[in-house]
Computed example of a mutant assay.
Amino acid sequence: MRVGLGREGTVTHPTLELQVDLKSTCNDGSVRIGEAAARLGVATHVLRHWEDERVVIPLRSSSGHRDYAEEHLQRLRIVKSCQRLGLSLPEIRQILHRDEPGRVAVIDRRVGEIRRLRAELDMAERFLGHVRECRHDFITRCTECSAYAGTRGEIGSDA
């Protein structure tokens, strides 16, 4: 808003200058929550939730708007990647900082789960490869097919 003197010393009325595109981008290169969410392909409420969970806490402008710098955006990308790996927000919060207690245990636990899943998928692939070539009329008559089903089909089975 500008207030000034007009011609002949008269006071001019305040005027506003409209600046466009300030909603999403800030002068320092950071972006507001809507733009950050759009770049990540998530809803704004997701970023608010991640902030509530203290996973990624953006800066605040003087007017209280959330400002996401490039470092915040990179952290948000890492959070999405960690979620794809099956990590929960508390686990992600734990592994984001190198000195966080229990960090290594969380990582080791997830790596173990990934290895278990990989072994299970390898076994499933071998089973389906055999089923495709199986010469039995019914796969229930095949000892190899039945062996796979015996290790997978019971409630409470850890195999």
Rank of each mutant, 00 (worst) to 15 (best):
R2F: 12
L5P: 00
G6P: 00
R7L: 08
T10R: 15
H13K: 10
P14W: 08
L16Y: 12
V20R: 15
V20P: 06
D21N: 15
K23H: 12
N27R: 13
D28S: 08
S30P: 03
V31N: 02
R32W: 05
G34N: 08
R39K: 11
L40T: 08
A43V: 11
H45I: 07
H45R: 13
V46D: 06
L47C: 07
L47F: 06
L47H: 05
R48V: 09
W50L: 02
E51D: 14
D52L: 09
E53Q: 14
R54M: 07
R54H: 10
V55A: 02
V56D: 02
P58G: 04
L59E: 14
R60L: 11
H65W: 11
Y68V: 00
Y68G: 05
A69Q: 15
A69H: 14
A69L: 14
A69P: 03
E71R: 14
L73S: 03
Q74E: 14
L76Q: 00
I78V: 13
K80H: 04
Q83F: 02
Q83Y: 04
G86Q: 10
L87M: 15
S88M: 04
D99M: 03
E100I: 01
E100M: 12
P101T: 08
G102R: 07
V104S: 11
A105G: 07
A105Q: 15
A105S: 12
V106W: 11
D108T: 13
D108R: 15
R109P: 00
E113H: 11
I114D: 00
R115V: 08
R115G: 02
R115D: 14
R118H: 09
L121V: 00
D122N: 05
A124L: 14
E125T: 12
F127P: 00
F127L: 03
R132C: 02
R132K: 13
E133V: 07
T140K: 11
C142I: 08
A147G: 12
Y148C: 05
R152Y: 02
R152V: 12
E154A: 13
G156C: 06
S157M: 12
A159P: 00
